[in-house]
Simulated assay, not measured.
Amino acid sequence: MVESRRFEAVVDGRVAGFAEYIRGEGLVVFPHTEVDTAFEGRGVGSALARAALDDAKGRGAAVLATCPFIAGWMRRHPEYLELAYQNRSSVSD
């Protein structure tokens, strides 16, 4: 089963940004993140990235960040690089 949804950041009752995800068995793909221009520079994108990646980590899922924002955020926060799909060891031999 594949689940497609999004994380939302709400500020003062308004959706300030979102990070879309597609969740499958042991893998989460982040294809797109968007922050409303009225909220840019206020840490909304970083909060979304952290919440989304913490959720993936809590589920034990690998992360495939096709979204440039999430991929860049992970590179700037190396403590999250262990989640990257390409950094995971192959389970099957």
Rank of each mutant, 00 (worst) to 15 (best):
T66Q: 03
L48S: 08
A52R: 03
I70F: 13
G13Q: 09
H32N: 02
L53W: 07
P78A: 13
A65H: 02
R6L: 03
Y80Q: 07
S89E: 14
A47M: 08
E79L: 05
E82F: 08
G60I: 12
R42S: 01
H32G: 01
F18N: 05
A56T: 04
P68A: 08
V35T: 15
F69E: 08
F39E: 01
E79W: 12
S89M: 08
K57G: 12
V63N: 07
Y21H: 10
E25K: 15
I22Q: 15
G45V: 08
E8R: 12
R6W: 01
T37C: 01
A52V: 02
V44M: 04
E25G: 05
A47R: 14
M1C: 11
A19F: 00
S90N: 13
T37Y: 02
P68M: 06
D93K: 12
A49N: 01
A51I: 00
S4C: 08
F7N: 07
S92R: 14
V35S: 03
V63C: 05
F69Q: 09
G43K: 06
A62L: 06
A51Q: 08
R14Y: 03
G43L: 03
H32L: 06
F18C: 06
V10E: 15
R76L: 11
A38L: 06
C67P: 07
L83F: 10
D36G: 02
P31R: 09
F39Q: 04
V29Y: 06
S46D: 10
A71R: 07
E82A: 12
R23N: 01
G60R: 10
A9E: 05
Y80S: 13
Q86E: 15
E82L: 11
V11C: 09
R75L: 09
A49V: 00
A65G: 06
H77C: 13
A62Y: 06
A19E: 04
D54C: 02
P31N: 06
R14G: 00
